[in-house]
Design a protein around this nucleic acid. Structure first.
Lengths: 158, 158
DNA sequence: GTTGATGCAAAACTTTTGCAACACG
DNA sequence: CGTGTTGCAAAAGTTTTGCATCAAC
């Protein structure tokens, strides 16, 4: 509860700091990401559908505009699983905490989250060697999940 | 030269191993990725354009079909920079060598490659803790390149 | 009251697909 | 020759945009 209130206040603050306005649409979109623990990686169309189930009949274009906006405000993060649509997930409330990592099973296509970061060393190396100042990262691992591992992984042409 | 011949033979081998046929289209598409050092991350449409400049007038659908095929054969890798199109780059000839990393400058939008991998420790940790067997990864770092670092990074609404 | 936001419909893009003609092995 | 491939045009799917109306500050 308290976290939701904090997140809403944070949205309000970031909006007004950038001369945007708070609207019911923006509030409810954020709400969806705060509630929807089952599937944390939603496309604009999926957000639209979830909202419709909750009887919020917002325009699809509004959803597209606002997930993108929330992403530029650092409230959502863009993520792409190569399924033809851009997805978004809740960003960490603490800007110093980087994104978790995604493990993508090549067999069952499920996506798992790995909550530790553990990239400090690599980031330090990159900054030292290339002069590139890193502010965030996106890491995907492809492979086989515990359930699919060991099973037949045939994926040749039939 | 020798590397190109090796790559072509490799393509031929992987095609026939999977009951696909070698065609001029497939050969020239691979050629583009072997030659095009300037921009190594090409979308299907861009491959199509580059080929047209070289007087190869292949159908756009053929390009789409074949970059995807070369990707499933492990010859190209898919990569997505959230610009609305799927891009491809040449995969390492050695399947044991993982992908390099991409550094994406938030200011000038240029993309830099960082050639070292350095993820073995993290991969071992993930496998140990989650049972997920990793076969490849895709890593993007966002930040500011040596040129843009230190300059004004204003990106608020005007 | 001003300025920004929404909703709708149309438009713009990227990617996929059906099918007849063609070509590799 | 048989099966896979190409090219074309049409279709499908996602995302963006113009504009009149509406609502937040």
């Amino acid at each position: 509860m308290s976290d939701k209130n904090f997140r809403l206040q944070d949205l309000r603050a970031r909006l007004s700091a950038n001369h945007y306005k708070m609207t019911p649409q923006r509030k409810e979109i954020l709400q969806i990401f705060l509630e929807n623990n089952a599937d944390p990686h939603l496309s604009a169309e999926e957000v639209y559908e979830v909202l419709k189930k909750k009887d919020f009949d917002f325009g699809l274009a509004t959803i597209y505009r606002n997930v993108e906006l929330l992403s530029t405000l650092g409230i959502l993060s863009k993520i792409n699983f190569d399924d033809g649509r851009t997805r978004y997930e809740l960003a960490s409330a603490d800007p110093k905490v980087h994104q978790h990592h995604h493990l993508i099973c090549l067999k069952c296509k499920k996506i798992f989250e790995f909550e530790e970061d553990l990239l400090e060393n690599l980031e330090t190396t990159i900054t030292t060697k290339s002069g590139f100042e890193i502010v965030n990262h996106e890491v995907k691992f492809f492979g086989y999940c515990a359930d699919c591992k060991g099973k037949d992984n045939a994926d040749k042409k039939s």
